[in-house]
Design a protein around this nucleic acid. Structure first.
Lengths: 363, 363
DNA sequence: CAGAAACTTGTTACCGTTAACAAACAGACC
DNA sequence: GGTCTGTTTGTTAACGGTAACAAGTTTCTG
């Protein structure tokens, strides 16, 4: 539709020695702000104002600019914007390079919330949750001008590295377990309480004590679950069986399960996560111990398919997507506070028991 | 360490009306190229040359510049580089917003390979694998100047949208199933062959025919598995049982399993993935059908824990991480070809049978 | 040893956007 | 009517790099 006559190009016609505006390297170029401005008969700054919703633009002018933008299919160049504003509208996620269920679910929660807030997320995974690799990941993200960082399910080494990172980027940690006095905001699952609930559930069913199939001892989450379990047993005056170090997967659970299945005194097992529980169930079955008739088993995480284990698993539910979303909101909040000295918020989410068929009263 | 005397600042001392170099908004600024140049006593262009490994820099000069960079802890600003070169060294991943095992494993494969190649990856997930959401995702990635895009496990709607995206970004697709004549490179699993191998394995064990617990019919991967299964039965002259639509999780598998368990003629089931198999196993067990004595079950994917199912699952192995790596290498290759008209490469990976305990000969 | 070729280095323009300032124009008030 | 605010718009200068060209050095030739 014809709007108004485009203003004449006000640039000086002749340039320096070399004149022709030769194209730079490769790639098709879309239209830029200047093109829109020319078509709408305004200055590029006015176009910028329209894009950024500045209040002082006449309604009629705004319409004209918007029309021009549409007709040219204009898209603002974020690199230029980033350069000018030092704000990239990109967030960095530091994750652990493996296929653990929790971290991945969080990623999606974070991403969709970030999208809603107008941010893109970039991921930097580390092969090992140690100081040096994390510093490198932060560095990589910082070079790409991320506005903030979320560290997923970190061990202390990670939060340490984050605090000491040279870049002054806002960070939040989600998952893991912490002192409660971390220098930046955290969103955490109350693993100790979760473990307490699980253990108490088993005690309430009449079991004399509860054994534990633990996760990796150097993961705070695993350690907190051990602590909660042990505390509950102490409080109940029950015997505290020994714990052996494990890992997060079914293979490790199977190893632990074989050990436990061999001991006829074992009637209840609290597993550090559902995958471990799967391995434990397998070992119990192979040993001829029936679940839940002979042994009760509780997991942790409530993975999507744990209701279809053999038998369906009683477990502690965690909403990882929700954790991710809350972490993001904390980060955005943190970012908007212009380096105020407000103390970091700490969100703690308590998991809940999901009763299924892997637990039963003792006879 | 003292190197050489810094050259005098060659800039004109007096500027226009306002003089003082007032700082812009927020955030701490690191040193920039000019600072390094001044400290090393060279021009900023020379610093640029050093960073970009240009050959024509005197060794002594290079050393001086590198020392200056180190002492200032210099980090190049990628936004500025992107603006000047139109190359961001960032790749975009389009994924499906859910917790499917395959896609996530691919993400890690891609990310680590991308890191090695000097790229950062940004993810854009879509809630639904349809035309419009995918276009939006592409748009978001394009705005952030990604250099290329990998679409994970797409349905035809995705590849279609990708082909019609207005941006001329290089794309590759990984996963899914395609015509073999897609307009861009693909890395795919040979689902049909995998299904054939699985089905043949069951036929070879003496089963009269093989039933199928299918995935979602609008996913090409699921469809290809149906096709491979059906073809094998035809070729063997076996009866082809009906197929009902499903989904990728254990709940859907359970539904299908209940139907199949009720039919005494069913002695062998090929499941579209391991999670479905888990549900099927559950349903069979509840119906009192023993696996593998009464019914043999085969899965697809070889998820990390499927060896601990009840019983350990015979399944088709896929290396998702490897798929991701190969997709990345295809993308980089594609990007380096200056819009040549070379036909797109298509990689096809054949999954292999992993024998475990869920299959047995008929008696 | 002169001239050419190759190697180094510096200068200037430009990538596309936002920030800061200035100017033009309107309405309000005395 | 003139000054005084406030709104709207334009002009110029960054932001921090790379590209293109020019110019000054060497080093190689014959």
């Amino acid at each position: 539709m014809p709007t108004s006559d485009p203003a004449p190009d006000t640039e000086p016609a002749a340039q320096m020695p070399f004149a022709a505006p030769r194209p730079r390297s490769g790639k098709v170029r879309g239209s830029v702000m200047r093109d829109v401005a020319k078509l709408a008969g305004v200055s590029h700054q006015t176009v910028s104002r329209v894009i950024n919703d500045h209040p002082n633009v006449r309604a009629e002018t705004r319409e004209r600019v918007l029309a021009a933008m549409r007709s040219l299919n204009y898209r603002r160049n974020l690199a230029a914007r980033t350069l000018a504003t030092r704000e990239s509208r990109t967030l960095g996620i530091i994750g652990f390079e493996t296929t653990l269920f929790g971290p991945e679910s969080m990623l999606y929660g974070i991403e969709s919330a970030a999208r809603a807030a107008g941010y893109l997320v970039s991921v930097a995974t580390v092969r090992e949750l140690a100081h040096q690799p994390v510093l490198e990941a932060v560095d990589r993200l910082a070079q790409h001008d991320v506005d903030g960082i979320i560290a997923i399910s970190p061990k202390p080494a990670v939060t340490n590295a984050l605090t000491h990172a040279p870049t002054g980027l806002p960070c939040v940690a989600v998952g893991g377990a912490g002192s409660g006095a971390d220098p930046f905001p955290t969103v955490r699952v109350d693993n100790a309480t979760g473990a307490r609930l699980a253990t108490q559930h088993l005690l309430d069913l009449g079991h004399a004590t509860v054994h534990h199939a633990a996760g990796p001892p150097d993961w705070p989450e695993a350690q907190a679950r051990v602590d909660g379990w042990r505390d509950t047993l102490y409080a109940a005056g029950a015997v505290v069986p020994p714990v052996t170090p494990g890992w997060w997967d079914a293979a490790a659970g199977y190893e632990q399960g074989r050990r436990l299945a061999a001991d006829p005194a074992v009637t209840a097992i609290f597993c550090a996560n559902d995958r471990i529980a799967l391995g434990v169930l397998r070992a119990l079955h192979e040993a001829g111990r029936r679940v839940p008739q002979d042994v009760s088993v509780v997991g942790f995480d409530d993975m999507p398919d744990s209701g279809y284990f053999h038998p369906p698993l009683t477990t502690m539910h965690q909403d990882f997507g929700e954790l991710g979303r809350r972490a993001l909101s904390l980060l955005l909040n943190h970012m908007s506070q212009v380096d105020g000295n407000t103390p970091p918020s700490h969100v703690l989410v308590v998991p809940e028991v999901i009763l299924r068929s892997s637990t039963a009263p003792t006879r």
